[in-house]
């Protein structure tokens, strides 16, 4: 994505209140994730190191805006710190999946032939598994823990990127500017990196923005099923799962982390929509027309 494109995207986001909502949610989430340890009202509660029997199951109040859980910990602090783990997971999963998926799709698409077919058949093998099921199996095998969750999700995720890049590269590699690069005498590696990849990344950027939200959702799913991060890590999915047992007496300890997941995922979706609109020239035109 070039600087000009980024500026245009920002411009289009600013004029659209829905996109702006997405941007605000995502920004708030990222800031919360980065600053979490410093802004939680009860840091010990947030890390899950405390046990206050006299403060168990307190309903939401000014002191504890999201109430307290079965261990008497402040849910608000735990949700805020949870943003850090969700941010780590989403960046880790999408980043790792891109790191595996892009080179495979690029090489398979550009070189084609037998090597390309082999790479894509391997990709298809991974795609043949339902992604969440594959992630559950991997997470269960690797054992609980943040890094394992990221690895498990990334392994079930990269084939989608590699497909997407493959399709893009296939349509780009026959364009005249790629021929021109060949005529200059550039090596296939330089042609791929300088001419093919930068032009293939637009849809990948949009997909990655969407997937940041989905990764949080799936990691929460893994935690909820008991194959995710280790307690007492305040990961949102784990918080929902922990509160689930006591939902009858303390609905707040499940509800607020659940809402955090919901709002963040919606935020990423709105933002991804805005990026997609800004990158599609036809939609871009339609947006400009709508404004007039």
């Amino acid at each position: 994505m070039s600087f000009e494109e980024a500026r245009l995207i920002f411009k289009l986001i600013r004029v659209n209140p829905i996109s702006m909502t997405g941007l605000i949610i995502v920004t708030a989430f990222v800031v919360m994730g980065l600053l979490a340890p410093y802004i939680t009202p009860y840091p010990e509660d947030a890390w899950g190191l405390t046990y206050n029997i006299e403060k168990r199951y307190l309903p939401p109040s000014l002191e504890h805006p999201f109430g307290t859980d079965e261990m008497g910990r402040d849910v608000f602090s735990r949700v805020i710190l949870g943003a850090r783990f969700s941010l780590l997971i989403s960046v880790g999963v999408v980043g790792l999946a891109l790191l595996i998926g892009i080179p495979i799709g690029l090489v398979a698409g550009y070189l084609g032939g037998r090597a390309g077919t082999l790479l894509m058949r391997i990709t298809d093998m991974f795609l043949a598994f339902p992604p969440l099921l594959l992630a559950i199996a991997l997470a269960a095998t690797l054992g609980r823990g943040l890094v394992n969750v990221i690895i498990a999700l990334a392994i079930s995720w990269w084939p989608w990127y590699s497909r997407l890049v493959y399709v893009q590269v296939n349509s780009i590699k026959n364009l005249p500017y790629v021929d021109a690069a060949k005529i200059i005498g550039l090596s296939p590696f330089k042609i791929m990196v300088r001419h093919v990849l930068p032009n293939a990344l637009t849809p990948v950027t949009v997909q990655a923005a969407l997937d940041m939200g989905s990764a949080i959702l799936e990691a929460a799913g893994l935690s909820f099923l008991g194959v995710g991060v280790k307690p007492p890590t305040p990961e949102w999915g784990l918080l929902v799962s922990e509160g689930w047992a006591t939902i009858n007496i303390a609905w707040w300890s499940s509800l607020f982390p659940g809402l955090a997941i919901l709002v963040t995922v919606i935020g990423f979706n709105l933002l991804a929509d805005a990026v997609r609109e800004a990158m599609d020239p036809r939609l871009r035109k339609a947006i400009v027309m709508r404004r007039l």
């Binding site: 005249p176 500017y177 690069a181 300088r194 001419h195 930068p198 032009n199």
Partner: peptide, 10 residues
């Protein structure tokens, strides 16, 4: 080539 907008990397 024929079409300069296709033969120059955008």
């Amino acid at each position: 080539f024929q079409n300069p907008f296709l033969s120059l990397n955008p």
